[in-house]
């Protein structure tokens, strides 16, 4: 579940940035409610506590340092961190987050994923040779081919969100695995929920 906490934490850290973006065609522009904000705050606290006890230096860039103005640059986050490897693998970076989950029968990218997508967009724009594959997925119910098309719809929604952020079509590809790569093979609502997702995979990884 930690993977899910990071982007929520970043919503706080990057809120100054996202407020400068216009309403975008495919990203749901929903102002966080008080409960959402409270939840995020708690989640953020939990996450930093955890990181602190783990003794990780990974949490240092999360205070907002290195995120200035309206352009978010993946490289800048890397500089603010003691992490020296591939910035996409820095656990403290939103670039390490590679999953976008969707509501039932929904193809709308939720607002909470905007900072993470902006980080990937910035990375792609500053690394013109990088290629990102957006792999759409669906839950197991119904026809395999129809589910393939539903997964594609989700992948396309993410691709369009990245396009609005300035990513060139040449640098990404929306594909679908339908129900062929179930994260959870169970038949519960919970299993279905984790299977309705888009995975972000860089071609060189």
């Amino acid at each position: 579940m930690n993977k899910i906490i990071w982007p929520i934490l970043l919503v706080l850290a990057l809120s100054g940035c996202s407020s400068t973006s216009d309403t975008q065609a495919t990203v749901e522009d929903r102002t966080a409610t008080k409960t959402d904000a409270a939840k995020a705050a708690t989640a953020g606290k939990d996450a930093s506590d955890k990181a602190a006890t783990a003794g990780g230096a990974q949490t240092t860039p999360l205070d907002g340092a290195g995120v200035k103005g309206s352009s978010l640059d993946g490289k800048q986050i890397g500089e603010g961190s003691s992490y020296t490897g591939d910035p996409r693998k820095d656990p403290a970076s939103p670039l390490a987050t590679r999953e976008i989950f969707f509501d039932y029968d929904s193809y709308v990218v939720k607002e909470e994923y905007r900072p993470m997508l902006e980080a990937h967009a910035a990375y792609l724009m500053s690394h013109r040779d990088a290629r990102l594959i957006l792999q759409g997925n669906a839950d197991e119910r119904g026809s395999r081919e129809y589910n393939l098309a539903l997964g594609q719809k989700r992948a396309e929604a993410v691709r369009k969100a990245l396009a609005v952020m300035g990513v060139s079509d040449a640098q990404d590809e929306a594909v679908s695995f339908g129900e062929e790569k179930l994260r959870d093979e169970g038949h519960t609502e919970e299993a279905h929920a984790v299977n309705r997702r888009v995975d972000l995979v860089y071609a060189d990884e």
């Binding site: 594959i133 792999q135 393939l148 590809e173 594909v175 679908s176 695995f177 339908g178 062929e180 995979v201």
Partner: peptide
Amino acid sequence: YVSFEDKKP
């Protein structure tokens, strides 16, 4: 047929 061996259909 459709194969996913190329990491996509």
